[in-house]
């Protein structure tokens, strides 16, 4: 479909109308828009598309994607600008500005397909598993939950309003811990992926375990950063807010995510597959390297499986509900709908 074709098609129609009107009675049909236009100008209601293109673009990217879609139907010129890379690069910039993490591949896509990058980044922000590249790149801030009891909490810097200690994961399986409180055997920590947790499976990269400490499950913060938590501790891929600063990172809120993650991980497998292909090439390699570790079953967790399976069957939602459950509650509803629709397409 080209703009040229549109004009060719619509021009003759308008001409015909015009002639009829000159001959006949209802000339208002054509004249009305012209009069309206003049009246509007007198009222100083300026058509924003008469502004320089770059400024018109800046105005459009103050809108939501749904509003931009409406604007594109105004005229062929509006459509052209609404589809432009300028507008969608700006949309990406605004969307990503207050986020701590957007995957490199998506950031690179902004140059060639900014609208695709916009959508994909929204979709990716709900990904609840991590690639080895991501895991080993972030400097993770650590704190204990209140669960393990006062003796841990008292020694944890975060609980004492100090800089939290940090974890650094290395591709060779090492974990280095720094900070005021490094716990027992800080230099003998090894990490590995585990295929399931509490009897629940997830896409590769959903669960990680250090030595024989309680395993971690991944989730996302509204700032698109990663959170990993076990029953006893929580780590963030971004500077950890102080106590009381962030409701999403309080123990109660984390506990709710923890429960939900355990339930949803097996359903999300299928839907994650597409993104996994794009985002996790190095992970395939890692997978084979860690195979031995993967085969290391957690015996005490097997027992829980049955109970949890039942719970899951009860709560097995419809396809639509899975998406509604996504933790991106900050997004405007329209964006979430659009994203949902797109995901469904991709799955089909």
């Amino acid at each position: 479909m080209s703009v040229g074709v549109i004009r060719m098609n619509s021009e003759p129609t308008r001409m015909t109308n015009h002639h009829e009107n000159e001959d006949g009675q209802s000339s208002e049909l054509v004249v009305t828009p012209l009069i309206k236009r003049h009246r509007k100008l007198e009222e100083a209601l300026l058509d924003p598309s008469e502004l320089p293109e770059e400024i018109f673009s800046s105005i459009l990217c103050c809108l939501t994607p749904a509003d931009i879609a409406q604007c594109s139907l105004v005229s062929s010129y509006w459509n052209q600008i609404c589809k432009s890379h300028t507008v969608w690069r700006c949309m990406c910039d605004k969307l990503w500005d207050d986020k701590v993490y957007v995957p490199r591949l998506i950031r690179e896509m902004r140059a060639t397909d900014p609208r695709g990058a916009y959508r994909l980044s929204l979709k990716d922000s709900t990904r609840q598993y991590i690639t080895v590249e991501e895991l080993t790149t972030f400097e993770w801030c650590f704190r204990f939950k209140a669960n393990p009891g006062a003796e841990w909490v008292e020694r944890d810097p975060w609980w004492n309003d100090k800089t939290p200690s940090t974890h650094k994961y290395y591709p060779n399986g090492e974990v280095k811990i720094t900070g005021d409180f490094t716990g027992i055997h800080p230099n003998e920590r090894r990490w590995r992926w585990i295929p399931r947790m509490g009897g629940k499976e997830g896409p590769h990269g959903s669960f990680v375990q250090i030595n024989h400490f309680p395993p971690y499950v991944f989730s996302r913060h509204p700032n698109w950063g990663f959170i990993q938590q076990s029953v006893a501790a929580v780590l963030t891929s971004f500077p950890m807010p102080s106590k009381g600063e962030c409701p999403e990172l309080e123990d109660d809120a984390l506990e709710a995510i923890y429960q939900k993650q355990n339930r949803r991980s097996s359903r999300s497998r299928q839907r994650s597959r597409i993104a996994q292909v794009t985002l996790s090439l190095p992970m395939q390699l890692m997978n084979s390297l860690l195979r031995d570790g993967l085969l290391d079953e957690e015996e005490e967790e097997e027992e829980e499986e049955e109970v949890e399976e039942e719970e899951m069957r009860e709560e097995e939602p419809t396809k639509a509900e899975v998406f509604i459950e996504d933790p991106d509650e900050d997004l405007p509803v329209v964006e979430r709908q659009e994203e949902k629709r797109q995901m469904e397409c991709e799955l089909d």
Partner: peptide, 25 residues
């Protein structure tokens, strides 16, 4: 501020508001 003039409007309403010719079939 100008974007707010476009927000939540249908294409018809935007054309009407700013006197824009519809050249799309």
């Amino acid at each position: 501020h100008i974007a707010n003039e476009l927000k939540g409007k249908t294409p018809d309403q935007i054309r009407e508001r700013f006197g824009i010719q519809d050249d799309l079939t």
